[in-house]
């Protein structure tokens, strides 16, 4: 009985390992094949999280150890918390330095916000935090202006919007 359970666990661990590695491969393929920085970001973030989860559970299963679970969970949670932040930072830097291909975008609602911010010059701390002493586009757009603009952007999400959903 324990022998068959052992075999099952081993098989599960094996499948987890292979699929986890497959996710790394997915990230690699995505990095190479997607057209611009922002879409490559998807490939770099999402499969990694699942891949690490599968690999860590394979380690826990293979070592048959419950004492290991907290530290493995911690490693995964750390990645869960850091991966979106680093993706956001890279994406933001990429967007602001124009590392994107316009023709791959169907809609770009941020474009006008940033354009207006440049026009109005340095403003309040409108967009996400930004170090002091910079000028130009690095600065967040003036708060009031964004309020006006984003109101237009998210028209579909206004008071009437979500009721439809």
């Amino acid at each position: 009985m324990t022998g068959s359970l052992d075999a099952v666990l081993q098989a599960v661990a094996g499948v987890c390992l292979v699929v986890g590695c497959l996710m790394s491969l997915a990230a690699g393929i995505g990095m190479l094949r997607f057209p611009d920085l922002l879409s490559r970001m998807h490939a770099a973030t999402k499969p990694q999280v699942l891949g690490l989860f599968l690999l860590l559970s394979a380690v826990a299963i293979e070592l048959r150890s419950w004492a290991l679970v907290p530290v493995l969970l911690l490693a995964w949670l750390l990645q869960l918390l850091t991966a979106p932040v680093s993706a956001h930072m890279v994406g933001r830097a990429g967007y602001r330095t124009k590392h994107l291909k316009r023709q791959t975008l169907l809609v770009d609602e941020l474009d006008q916000v940033v354009a207006r911010a440049v026009q109005d010059g340095p403003g309040r701390d409108g967009l996400a935090q930004e170090g002091p002493g910079q000028d130009g586009m690095g600065q967040g757009p003036a708060g009031q202006d964004v309020a006006g603009r984003t109101g237009g952007c998210s028209a579909g999400t206004g008071p009437a919007g979500p009721a439809a959903g």
Binding site: T45, A87, H88, G91, R92, L127, A128, G143, A147, T150
Partner: peptide, 9 residues
């Protein structure tokens, strides 16, 4: 994924 956050709004 999130490109930009407008915290004020």
């Amino acid at each position: 994924f999130v490109v930009e956050v407008d915290r004020g709004n």
